[in-house]
């Protein structure tokens, strides 16, 4: 699991990635991670009393930060596929999607070549 840190929502930059699900005080899911912050999302969360969110910990540098983001997104892809029936065909499809995702980010220099 990539490192993350809690920050004040009001001071976060647009485009920052929320890396942990956000729930309201009643436990209802407001945001499913990972999700980039945009002005509308920030306004909605603040209006619902959310003051802090988790974002990746960038203290280890930009490269590490990028790697963490990619790692979070890769986990999210697997999670989205998790309700597919567990067949060899479906496993192969998941691997095709994951590999294309890794190649895409490797070509952008965000992760080591795959």
């Amino acid at each position: 699991m990539a490192r993350m840190m809690k920050v004040e929502l009001a001071t976060t930059e647009d485009g920052e990635m929320i890396v942990q699900d956000v729930h309201d005080m009643l436990g209802r899911l407001l945001v499913r991670a990972p999700r980039r912050i945009d002005p509308e999302l920030k306004r909605m969360l603040l209006a619902r009393g959310i003051q802090e969110v988790f974002i990746p910990d960038q203290s280890s540098g930009d490269a590490e930060y990028e790697r963490q983001i990619v790692e979070q997104e890769r986990d999210a892809i697997r999670k989205r596929f998790s309700r597919l029936q567990d067949t060899p065909d479906n496993k192969r499809i998941v691997e095709i999607f994951i590999r294309a995702f890794e190649v895409f980010h490797a070509e952008k220099g965000k992760i080591p070549p795959v």
Binding site: I77, R80, F81, Q85, D89, I93
Partner: peptide
Amino acid sequence: SSAYGMGHSEDPFVEGGIR
């Protein structure tokens, strides 16, 4: 699009396969 997070739903894959 849904698999890569360009979606608004987390359940696109229960309705038939992709292959």
